[in-house]
Each structure stands twice: as structure tokens, then as C-alpha cells.
Nucleic acid binder design. Sequence first.
DNA 1: GGGAAGATGTTCT
DNA 2: GAACATCTTCCCT
Length: 200
Amino acid sequence: MSLYNYLWPPLPGEFYYDDTVTVAKNLLGKLLCRSTERHVAAGIIVETEAYLSEGDPACHAARGMTRRNAPMFGTPGSAYVYFIYGKYNCFNVVTNKPGKGEAVLVRALEPVMGEDLMCRLRGGITERTALAGGPGRLCQALNIDRSLNEHDLMRPPLWIASGGEIKRFKIIETARIGISRGAALPLRFYIEGSHYISRR
DNA sequence: GGGAAGATGTTCT
DNA sequence: GAACATCTTCCCT
């Protein structure tokens, strides 16, 4: 148990056993925390997308379980990480109920700690808005890859904490980004006015 | 500030 | 063999 896990205790498991749209909204303003041997990096979640098992053809689980999407059917509060476009990883949080096949894609962070580490992992990029603004970027910045599949997000080296000190904000709902099927559904959520989201 | 195009490799059909 | 929950670079206005 690291010092930072004590300072930023993980959200309880019940948080994730809820309607996936509700969890996607509730994750906004929370802290995604990553520890390594020597460092801790963390950022405020400012943008998410919900992927549903019913009526949502864009969801990886829409056509049943495969080897890739199996972690989506696991325990709410565990990680689903997949590899995309030959280069990038995307980080999701499993939600709802075990076996349901739903998840929330975390799309953007506002860096709050360990920016030096994020900068290095991102190949020297220094603009704060580009460090973790985008699902592929935030996985690079926090060194998240498929080895963290099914990781329990109540424990280091990757956990989600309450961002208790974050002030009130309004949630904007839009269509999701980068998909062809189910593209009209309003399942993307972000913090109004945030400069750190992936796209306007 | 925005649009187009190419890179890249795993997964599923 | 096609699709893909993306990013970067390059060129345009």
C-alpha cells in the first residue's frame, strides 16, 4: 500500500455496480492514479464514453464474448484494455453487473501529478492539454497496456480515487467519437469548459 | 484552427 | 482480408 493510495483512497467497488451511463457520468471529476516503482502520476477524468450491451452496435460486446472482449464480462471495477490501430491502447472500466458486457471508455485526463513522467512516456510532448487528452494518449502517458487487463481498480498500481476537492461542474452529453455503428447515440460525457478534452 | 491521409498489428469473419 | 472506441504530420485557409 503506497502513501498515495492512502492519500487518495480508491473508490469502493459498489461505485461500479450501477447503470453504465450513470457510472460514466459519475467518473467525471474522479482521479485516475498510476504508480510505478519510483513514481506516481494522476489526472482528473474529464471525458468518458459509455458502451452498452443492448441496443449499442458499437460496443465490443454487442455480438457476444470473444477473446479480446472477455474482460468486459468480468467484475465491475476491473480494467478492460484493448489494442487499436496497430499502435494504441484504450482503457475502459467494467461496469454494471458481472457478465453484462458493459464498460466506460476513459477518453481524457487533466494532469494533476507526475507530469514529468507523463511527458517522458509521451515522447517529450510538453503541452499540458496534449499529455493525456485522448484515449490513446492517456494510455501512453500512464503506461497502460494489455498487461493491466482485468486489473482490480481498487488497488495499485492503477486505481481510481475520489476527486473530493474538485469543484462543481456541468456535464455535457454528445455523440461518441471515432465509431461508425451507433454513432448517433448520446453516450459521450465531458466536463463543461474543460481545456483537456480530446475534441470540442 | 481544421481537414486529409497514412501508419500499424491484432482480432474476427 | 477487412475493420478498427487513434494519433501525428502535412497542407490549407
